[in-house]
């Protein structure tokens, strides 16, 4: 409950920061010269919390797939150097024109493999097509549960072994939990954002490409620790840096 209030408080605070930042940036003209990028890394400060193991014995297929490599939760995935994986970075303020409205043609893939979602977090743009596939010889159901008030409507499709891919897109920016009801431990996220985005790799590194010159607020989202924001200025054809640190708890 406490963390919920903290989340609400941080949401309110970040909104205030965003509106304030937006007011400052408003009026600045974005130079149409060569696009730049925003790079950086996301680190965890402190010892990574213990990730509980998953008992997959109810489905022998899943249990067998994890016979040598037991499954565990992926709420916080930190590398040896403290790099945080599965953090989504996006530009929450400062974008305008085509940089905001262009939808990538790449089709990110969300795979159900060995009864785990790969990747655990799939980021995408509003309206960008994505694909849900299954590599497993056991039946899954793919069941995203967005808030319909946002304009994203929940759906629920079966994917038995050999099922064709499910291709979909989302209408609004939202962090959408995804689950499989058949395998209750299977839990992942669709993070729908507006504009360019990136997801950190296993070392916590990321690069947001195709960012026109300008001043921006970059937001880093982590499923357990919430969001952090930072101001960056991108010069034409240049790379700006924004590093983030989340405190372990």
């Amino acid at each position: 409950m406490k963390s919920r209030y903290r989340r609400i408080l941080s949401a309110v605070l970040s909104t205030v920061v965003l509106i304030g930042g937006g007011a400052l940036i408003l009026g600045q003209r974005v130079n149409a010269a060569g696009e730049g990028k925003i790079t950086g890394s996301v680190k965890l400060n402190g010892a990574a919390p213990h990730m509980k193991g998953i008992d997959m014995s109810k489905d022998p297929y899943c249990a067998k797939a994890h016979a040598t490599d037991p499954g565990h939760l992926e709420t916080v995935v930190a590398g040896a150097n403290g790099g945080l994986e599965n953090v989504v970075l996006y530009i929450s303020d400062g974008l305008s024109g085509s940089a905001l409205t262009d939808v990538p043609t790449a089709v990110p893939v969300f795979d159900q493999k060995n009864c785990v979602y790969t990747p655990h977090v799939l980021a995408m743009d509003i309206g960008q097509k994505f694909k849900v596939v299954t590599s497993d010889q056991t039946a899954h159901n793919i069941h995203p549960n967005p808030n319909p008030m946002t304009g994203n409507i929940p759906w629920n499709q079966s994917q038995p072994p050999g099922a064709p891919p499910v291709e979909k897109s989302w209408k609004a920016a939202e962090v959408i939990p995804v689950q499989c009801n058949i395998h209750p431990w299977m839990h992942g996220w669709f993070v729908v954002v507006k504009g360019p985005y990136a997801t950190t790799d296993s070392s916590g590194a990321y690069t947001i490409n195709n960012v026109p010159p300008g001043s921006y607020t970059v937001t880093a989202w982590q499923e357990e620790y919430g969001t952090q924001t930072q101001k960056v200025t991108v010069a034409g054809g240049q790379s700006a840096t924004a590093d983030f640190t989340f405190k372990a708890k």
Binding site: N141, I142, H143, W155, N156, Q157, S158, A163, P164, V166
Partner: peptide, 9 residues
């Protein structure tokens, strides 16, 4: 509910 659509399968 957990009951999915099997229309594709």
């Amino acid at each position: 509910t957990p009951m999915p659509s099997f229309a594709d399968n």
